[in-house]
């Protein structure tokens, strides 16, 4: 029975399956608002701009993923584990009492994935997570996928990775290295969202230098609002989770961290 199912279903070409998905997507009625930068907020030129910006990271990330799959033992289970964790983290509304009262905010999770798998692979993981969220969870959007991948994937991953490496060079304990990666990646993710929104001010039709100034002001304002509401306390919480995660992996299976060149195990 199982054999027959595989035989019949998988005889279909990938292109046919993709076409079926596309048809079903465009024939389904659509309403609802989501999270991250929501559908429709970006004008087409900005949507294209952000897609162009993230493409090199996605391509390099995919190549690195293929390379590490062959070379590093235990890499794919770790990708599965971390990928699912990033997906769950980034659509998990955590209740936080912020300065403006009760609100929910979600962590990014890309600090952890960048620290373990490298920043490029982390961009690919964030891209897949955000794509599924945009398709099915009314969370983000397809036209805003580029800017969301840029903020959570590119900025979140690279900032988290470099924060981790810097903390290591400073001789900090592994927990605090992970903590730094979690906090910094969360901060940069929301900075990326602020940049994406702040650039919309350039659409105002003012003179270029004034538009730039207004745009920078808007970015700063949005970032401060994010941090002073709920994201401030949440990024500390994310840092603690990432710190404990890396400490646990080091305790239980240090060989993985050694193979991935995350730490040197004596």
């Amino acid at each position: 029975m199982r054999y027959l199912f595989r035989l019949e279903m998988f005889k279909m070409k990938k292109s046919t399956l993709i076409l079926l998905i596309f048809i079903s997507i465009i024939t389904i009625p659509n309403f609802a608002f989501g999270m991250h930068i929501t559908e429709g907020i970006l004008p087409p030129k900005w949507a294209i701009f952000w897609f162009v910006m993230i493409m090199p990271f996605i391509v390099i990330g995919t190549l690195k993923l293929k390379k590490n799959k062959k070379e590093v033992p235990g890499f794919m289970p770790l990708v599965g584990l971390v990928g699912a964790a990033v997906f769950v983290f980034s659509c998990f509304p955590i209740p936080v009492i912020g300065l403006n009262g009760m609100a929910t905010a979600h962590p990014a999770g890309t600090g952890m994935s960048a620290m373990l798998l490298g920043p490029f692979v982390s961009v690919v993981i964030a891209g897949i997570a955000l794509f599924i969220q945009a398709l099915f969870l009314a969370h983000g959007g397809l036209t805003t996928l580029g800017v969301n991948i840029f903020s959570m994937g590119v900025l979140g991953s690279f900032s988290g990775y470099f924060a981790f490496r810097l903390a290591q060079r400073m001789g900090m304990k592994l927990f605090w290295c992970g903590f730094a990666a979690g906090v910094v990646s969360d901060l940069f993710t929301y900075m990326g969202t602020s940049i994406g929104l702040g650039l919309l001010v350039l659409e105002g039709g003012e003179a270029f230098p004034i538009a730039i100034m207004n745009s920078a002001k808007a970015m700063l304002e949005i970032f401060v609002v994010f941090m002073t509401t709920s994201q401030g306390p949440l990024c500390v919480a994310e840092g603690i989770v990432v710190g404990f995660a890396i400490s646990y992996i080091y305790k239980v299976r240090p060989s993985i961290l050694q193979n991935l060149k995350v730490v040197k195990v004596s």
């Binding site: 997507i25 465009i26 609802a32 608002f33 429709g40 004008p43 009314a138 919309l200």
Partner: peptide, 18 residues
């Protein structure tokens, strides 16, 4: 902020918020 800058959110392509 998106509304403030004249780009309000639109409804997503797949509606699961029903």
């Amino acid at each position: 902020y998106a509304e403030k800058y004249g780009h309000p959110p639109r409804k997503p392509y797949i509606n699961t918020d029903q």
